[in-house]
Design a protein around this nucleic acid. Structure first.
Lengths: 157, 157
DNA sequence: CAAAAAGGTTGTCTTTTGCAACCAATGCCC
DNA sequence: GGGCATTGGTTGCAAAAGACAACCTTTTTG
């Protein structure tokens, strides 16, 4: 049987059908779509920027190093993300009151507005993307994802 | 309650607790771990390389453009991945018999060996990483991932 | 009080990826 | 059959992300 001529639709079961492969592919699909949806916003082209903005919005006074931990990026990288958010006028950077070397990040008015838009888009995407999954399965899917994340994160040490 | 001072452990439920966020983070964790495990192999540092090698191994005679489709990368990018695999002596690149402009890729002996090792590592990772999920849940998790992948891929058009 | 550690910044380098342009072969269609 | 669009691959930028090392400042520790 010579089924190799066109591209393999039947990737499943062969070997790429591993959890890690699907996770990777799904991430790619989700990220591209999100980029497209965010195109008009001043946080476009930013995997890190989006998360950082939302984190600052949710945790006023958060420090860059904390963001770095969540993003799993090093400090220089995170610092540059913060830098761009400040330049874009979305967040404010002040010296932390209790620690002169640290910074306290807060959203600006515009930042709050954009954050709200970002959230809306994310929820919209979530609705569109996973509409095909029944509610109860989606809940379980979410639960397993969350749990895996925490278990694996913890395992890093 | 002012739980903002140190870094947010309780990311869940706040806002990053979206499917897309967990998928992204999980991908990051899985990829890093895989890189670490593959470090000794000649396909290290390659998200694309690994998949490409396995595809060639599974589909002897496959063409680069078919690999590009699976990888969701453009042809130049894929071409370079193939190039590196050829340089590494893992795959062979010949002119396709039925189409003079196309290429027919096959694994070398070494390629077959490495592919087997890669598969072993992937299965090992899968075992380690998702050991905390009960078998039946894991099966469902897998199913939903697979289904989502196909639905979203199809939606690209 | 000295040394170590923590928070950020700057500089640099590598890797990855995409886009545009190009060549060669194939297919279409009149 | 001959011209024209298409397909498969390659090459050449160019941009972006990310990592690592080195550095300065402040805080903590012993």
């Amino acid at each position: 049987m010579t089924q190799e001529r066109d591209h393999p639709d039947n990737v499943d079961g062969l070997l790429e059908g591993t959890l890690s492969w699907y996770i990777r592919s799904l991430d790619s699909l989700v990220s591209r779509d999100l980029d497209r949806r965010m195109a008009r916003l001043p946080v476009a082209r930013g995997k890190g920027k989006i998360t950082a903005l939302l984190l600052v919005d949710d945790h006023p006074g958060i420090r860059p190093s904390a963001i770095a931990t969540v993003l799993m990026r090093d400090r220089p990288t995170t610092g540059r993300i913060v830098e761009r958010l400040v330049e874009a006028g979305l967040i404010r950077r002040q010296v932390a009151g209790d620690d002169q070397r640290a910074q306290s990040l807060t959203v600006t008015e515009q930042g709050r507005t954009v954050a709200a838009q970002v959230r809306a888009i994310i929820r919209e995407q979530e609705r569109d993307f996973f509409a095909h999954i029944p509610a109860d399965e989606r809940r379980q899917f979410h639960r397993i994802l969350k749990q895996s994340y925490h278990v694996l994160r913890a395992g890093l040490t």
